[in-house]
Design a protein around this nucleic acid. Structure first.
Lengths: 336, 336
DNA sequence: TTGTATGCGTTATCAG
DNA sequence: CTGATAACGCATACAA
């Protein structure tokens, strides 16, 4: 591999002169510059950024650690991150934690050793140990989507509580009085927030919340399927189901179909998270859509800001607005 | 930032001894080891891999350059890549070219400067200049999904021609005689292959191909929509549409819906590329599914093999089988 | 079993 | 305008 010395030798100058030509820094006479440029072209020289990286402690790369890139929400968030990173000359390293604390910890350790300039993290759990480890090393870190306990750290997330509140109010306005809540895990802040928003709307409407209508479970299709079946057979006869995320919503729809129940004729559904327009041939779900791409962008911008500005300002929480999209899934079945 | 010297000083040993403890190499007495480990823990020392990277010319990172990660096919391919990379201790750098030759060239240049160990590339165009540039620098490169002209390079792709052949044969067996082909761009090998497979099946069935039934255009939803409308109004009265990829298929379905035509009662559809099961609430398209995850995995494995084994074996083309999935979209409408 | 010297590629600093 | 020197952090080769 040809290095700056080879170029210098061929152009009969010192290495530093080659450096000056490449970086347009300092003074170089036109004659010398041309000779150097000729040598660079002749040798096909490519500067090795590892040298400066080692010296100046910046690798111009950030990491995006999500639970799973194949979840379309994270795909879009990641795209937003990459957009901002590449526009600023940063490379984006992609990490999937698969919700595993262990895999996450392993990845974070590697990232530290590679001297990554900053990390965008969707925490695999609400255990703050990994996060503290990063912060101790003074590596800028922005948490995505979820709040974490016991650490002061930048967070960029959507307003789950408000979204859930609005969706629930929407159902209430349509006349629903028994609304089942298929929530995510109790350990995830978004899930708790969504239940809180749901409860808030009920209380405001003077409706006594019923714990038996709240199904805490995973954010998965299977959980949605499983609990929707329970809802169908529930003695409380709910007329609407609130799915805490898109996967739960899809499981719910499948369960209803299996029982030959129609949406919204037999049951109304609302959900947090939209389904990407590309893939839903018949968009009909009423949803509170989270701004995925914007979340990625905003978080990446905050991270780059932290990287560039050494002074440690206090951590901030950026809370993005969700968008209500009212479609056909949430009404019409109140004869029941 | 604390370095190996700080640890050495605290443990009262030479830096190399610390190195030996970390890497479990050479002899270190238990007593010394413990002292060193204590010092590492006390200082929260994290080894800086940039040193060895510079010295040994390997960064343990590969790049995955796709056209757009938000295309679910590439999402899944990328996941396969990341699986293999992380299992082998490599980091995956994510790049989106957005089908822009310029963006691709810019990214590749950066990757070269960062001393990336290898590159997985979905070429933005069939211009081989970028690829030659990489190969000249002796950086292992594996091309994904598409063949490129005028360069000998490793390629991992699916058998588009065979997939198109089988889909077309399926339509022919159902009795269709006028099958419109909504193809991708003429400049992309997959698109050409799919048309070739289509033509092959027609010829085999003794049907005269008609150029007016072939619509070369982009691999996008818009193109699918646009050309499906033309097909509907075509004097040739096709009874089936072959969508060359999933986006074209979705555009086609939308166009049919807009005209209040039903699939498959008024028009049959088949497509290459499946729609991720998670998001199609009612899977009904007959498709030739490409093994996306496997494609990523196989390509990453080939790349790592090239990285580890210096000797340059001749480039190879790995062609993966597609899977026919026959659903309801392809029959029933032959009264027309 | 432990340690010394050296070099990977680059650029800031200071000197000419 | 150009150049010599040094330093970033680590592990190999060699020495003790």
């Amino acid at each position: 591999m040809t290095n700056i010395q080879d170029v210098a030798k061929l152009a009969k100058v010192a290495p530093i002169t080659v450096s000056r030509v490449i970086n347009n820094s300092g003074y170089v006479s036109d004659k010398t510059r041309k000779r150097v440029e000729g040598a660079i072209a002749e040798l096909g020289y490519v500067p090795n950024m590892l040298g400066p990286s080692l010296r100046f402690k910046q690798t111009m790369s950030i990491a995006a650690m999500v639970t799973d890139i194949t979840n379309p929400f994270w795909t879009t968030v990641t795209r937003g991150i990459e957009d901002v990173a590449s526009a600023n000359g940063y490379l984006t390293i992609l990490c999937n934690s698969d919700e595993s604390e262990e895999k996450q910890a392993l990845y974070l350790e590697t990232l530290l050793q590679r001297q990554i300039d900053g990390i965008l993290l969707v925490p695999a759990s609400n255990d703050s140990a990994s996060i503290k480890r990063i912060l101790n090393q003074k590596i800028p870190l922005v948490v995505l989507d979820r709040e974490v306990q016991n650490v002061a750290v930048d967070v960029v997330r959507a307003d789950s509580q408000e979204g859930a509140y609005l969706l629930t109010k929407h159902l209430l306005a349509l006349g629903h009085r028994h609304i089942a809540m298929l929530a995510g895990p109790k350990s995830t802040s978004t899930s708790v927030d969504r239940v809180t928003g749901y409860l808030h709307a009920l209380e405001e409407a003077g409706i006594e919340p019923n714990d038996d209508l709240i199904y805490w479970d995973a954010y998965t299709q299977e959980a949605g399927y499983r609990n929707a079946k329970r809802v169908i057979n529930s003695a409380l006869c709910p007329t609407a189901i609130f799915a805490a995320n898109n996967f739960i919503a899809i499981g719910t729809i499948q369960a209803l179909k299996d029982q030959e129940l129609c949406v919204p004729d037999d049951m109304s559904i609302v959900a947090v998270d939209d389904i990407p327009p590309t893939y839903s041939l018949e968009p009909f779900l009423t949803v509170a859509a989270q701004p995925a791409k914007e979340m990625g962008r905003v978080a990446a911008e905050l991270l780059l800001d932290r990287i560039k500005n050494e002074e440690d300002k206090p951590p901030q929480s950026i809370i993005l607005d969700i968008t209500m999209i009212i479609r056909s899934s949430s009404g019409k079945n109140l004869k029941r």
